[in-house]
């Protein structure tokens, strides 16, 4: 048995964290500063050299190709999902600086999907159109992923499109996307996939793009942390964030589970243990919640 993200959340804060934490007083970058950082960190997805990646992919064993495809498909589809499901948040801006930043994030997500589409076309060898490649990548995904991205994220976007001035809907979207999907799941996957490729000296073109994607997502998560910290000064909003986490964490915990395994099973992803992966994700979430000023919610593990 392994301790899942859900188990760790039910367990509460980890012993290495101190009560004297000054995390709640960390000075955060605001949307204007994050927009200006975006201008300095632009990159081009279409010119990345994938020559060695093609050879590395051909040299992988069938098992290595399947493992890598399962890991990367969640990012390929995830980038498409958020590109198309981000319009509601862009419409919900409160001032011009936030509008500018949120617009850059939607552009970033489109560029990330382009990087994956190019990789799947040129390296993995999926023929057809961008849409066909996405359809095929969807076949790799588990049920928890589909519930999170096709139901929770889509619903959060729809509510903002219905009423961009709905503050609670905006808090729910940022909690769903920036705090759980991007800040807890994606950054964890990126860490381990990048580390694997670097340790094995494989897929350098993919890693070049993936590092740029991670850098973009650090800005995005910084925005989400800033927004929630501002809003959670209202205790009712802080409680709403906790409630949303209680709703989402049982689903999110299942996203990491590879084919043939069940939540709670011990397994390895690219050679990394499920305990390590879940602990990494939990630490990221719990530390970010401290910055925001919201306590870990009491989530019952299954």
């Amino acid at each position: 048995m392994t301790k899942t993200l859900l188990d760790l959340t039910a367990q509460g804060d980890v012993g290495t964290m101190t009560d004297e934490s000054k995390l709640a007083s960390v000075q955060l970058m605001n949307p204007q500063q994050l927009y200006e950082l975006w201008e300095k960190q632009n990159w081009i997805s279409q010119t990345i050299d994938l020559t060695k990646d093609k050879q590395d992919w051909a040299d992988f064993t069938q098992e290595e190709r399947e493992n890598m495809a399962w890991n990367l498909s969640s990012f390929f589809v995830g980038e498409e999902r958020v590109t198309t499901q981000f319009t509601g948040l862009v419409a919900a801006y409160d001032d011009q600086s936030e509008d500018a930043f949120l617009t850059t994030q939607q552009v970033d997500e489109a560029r990330h999907a382009q990087h994956f589409n190019r990789f799947y076309e040129q390296v993995v060898g999926y023929d057809g159109t961008f849409d066909k490649r996405l359809e095929r990548a969807r076949e790799d995904l588990n049920e928890a992923f589909l519930v999170l991205f096709d139901e929770h994220l889509v619903d959060a976007c729809r509510r903002l499109l219905d009423d961009p001035r709905d503050v609670e809907a905006k808090v729910d979207f940022v909690t769903t996307y920036h705090l759980v999907i991007e800040g807890t799941l994606a950054l964890t996957g990126q860490y381990y996939i990048t580390d694997y490729c670097e340790q094995h000296d494989v897929l350098p073109g993919f890693v070049e793009g993936f590092r740029n994607i991670s850098r973009d997502e650090h800005r995005h998560v910084a925005y989400g942390t800033w927004f929630l910290k501002e809003r959670c000064q209202d205790p009712a909003i802080a409680a709403r964030v906790q409630d949303k986490l209680v709703e989402l964490l049982p689903v999110a915990a299942g996203v990491f589970v590879p084919p043939g395994m069940q939540l709670g099973d011990s397994y390895e992803i690219l050679g990394y243990s499920s305990d390590d992966v879940n602990a990494f994700a939990f630490t990221a979430l719990s530390r970010r919640l401290k910055v925001i000023g919201v306590e870990l919610p009491a989530v019952a593990a299954a």
Binding site: T16, K22, L28, E217, H218, V221, A222, R287
Partner: peptide, 25 residues
């Protein structure tokens, strides 16, 4: 302190596996 880096630690002396508590960098 929450990440195991005591006050007074120069950036160069932070462990390589340290992560930003805000954005995960």
């Amino acid at each position: 302190p929450d990440g195991g880096v005591v006050p007074g630690t120069a950036f160069e002396d932070i462990p390589d596996d340290w992560f930003c508590p805000v954005c995960g960098a």
